[in-house]
Amino acid sequence: MTSPRDPLPLSGRQPRAVRSALAVLEEVVAAGPGVTAKEISAALRLPQATTYRLLNLLVGEEYLVRLPDLKGFALGRRAARLALPVTVAPPTAARAVVDHLRGLVRWGVHLAWLGAGQVTLVDPDPDHPPSDAALLARYPQASALGRLLLAEQPDWRALVRDLRVFTEYTVSTPAALTAALDRVAADGLARQCGELRADRGCIAVGVRAPGDGRLVAGLALSGPAQRVAEPNPELVALLREHADRLAPLLA
């Protein structure tokens, strides 16, 4: 989590350092994984000591990683956050499955990609519009879909910017979120009641690739908060059934 601690304006040679750091990142992408510090320094005509410092800084922040020989560099997982996730519209067959579920329940039914490390709504319910897509993408900890995504991470802090409080029910402490995510991982079902909007709640299950079980998408039902809080076994069963049907279509 990054907090804006130091509001000082950029001064002196800092703008150049920022430019150089971005150039280093770009060079690692351009040259491909395994490029060494010397090669980067030569390609960018940066002094070697400066290059090493920038590389160590970027490795420390985990935008870059050192490959096992300790010489070569590659983009780290965190660098994914620098790019917009590539989203593809779901195939017609998948939309038909989602529509089928909409016909069976009186709740909002939403489908979102989770594969790119971000919640991206691809088939929101037109009759029950979900919360703002940007909000869902930005605060994954407050939505059921986002929690599916976070429960999958080795460390959820990698994807959570700040634990913003939206309503009096919003999970706002790291310990509470960790507990909530442990429950999601255990049940395979994520739930939030009135945490984003006090009157609305959501339950969601993951759509997993049939081969390796990786999480590709999430299917969510949204409705009145107090209804979501109930166990709803038949709804959950229906949700799981449709998620299973989506798996071969989306992965």
Partner: peptide, 21 residues
């Protein structure tokens, strides 16, 4: 294993958290 991720341009699209297998 099961690298059915398409040609893979190294872009974020190929990098599901699912590799957290």
């Amino acid at each position: 294993p099961g690298g059915g991720d398409g040609p893979g341009t190294g872009g974020p699209g190929t990098d599901g958290p699912g590799t957290g297998g």
